[in-house]
Design a protein around this nucleic acid. Structure first.
Lengths: 120, 120
DNA sequence: TTCGATACCTAGAGCCTCAATGCATCAAGA
DNA sequence: TCTTGATGCATTGAGGCTCTAGGTATCGAA
């Protein structure tokens, strides 16, 4: 599904931070994780993700370090910092406020997220 | 509550369209309605709303016409068009996809919206 | 007459996404 | 051996958006 630019912009940072809260990860894997989490509906391009990661790093919400895959490819691993965790909580609160407001004016609630197998 | 720029950008058009789906309205009243719907958490400035309304009009999602209040002040009334209604449905679907994805990665569900009197 | 609420609008700074492009490695298959 | 697809990181330029700050004007009440 095509998602509006603004909505992508609003959800990119929170989604990345929340993914890194699960465990540290790297660009390409984050891309795949987003696709998986959304049941294939969200498909980010790498060209939009890397600037987001760099911005989060500049802001101190994530830290990066170079590593390697088992196969030998270089990877840049990102970890959530303490500040990033706090930031994520703020974003969650903000998201809730907006989501509640939209529901109040007739936006339908999200359907329950079906188990992953439902798409397999 | 302060809401991030990107989240405001993402929610502004859907919220305005949804408000106009209730009934036709004008700038100042929309501002008040947003505050009311959000329980006071969202406080838009007029400087951000008017450009949004103009953009929606250019896009054909709303139509405008001048009127007057009982007291005689001039008002520009906006109505949702057929295209705007369709657009709103698309935005609702998009919002749901993103919201579900965020929940899948640990975002808390919105608390049930309490009755308006709860804030009075 | 002055102030707060009502009511509209715009300009410029600054920020962001997106598409396109580039570089490089690895595994698999022709 | 060579090519292709997946993996992996990054930047640039065009275009679009919000936000702050400002401007104009009317009405009712103090």
């Amino acid at each position: 599904m095509n998602i509006d630019k603004d909505l992508v912009a609003a959800s990119a940072a929170p989604l990345v931070l929340a993914i890194l809260r699960e465990e540290e990860s790297y660009g390409y894997a984050i891309l795949k994780r987003v696709e998986e989490l959304s049941g294939g509906e969200l498909q980010w391009t790498d060209g939009m993700l890397y600037p987001v990661l760099h911005r989060l790093e500049r802001a101190g919400y994530v830290e990066a370090s170079w590593g390697r895959s088992e196969a030998g490819r270089r990877r840049k691993y990102y970890r959530l910092t303490g500040g990033g965790a706090k930031r994520l909580e703020v974003q969650q609160r903000q998201w809730r406020v907006v989501d509640r407001t939209l529901r109040a004016v007739g936006f339908p609630a999200a359907l329950r997220w079906r188990a992953k197998e439902a798409w397999a």
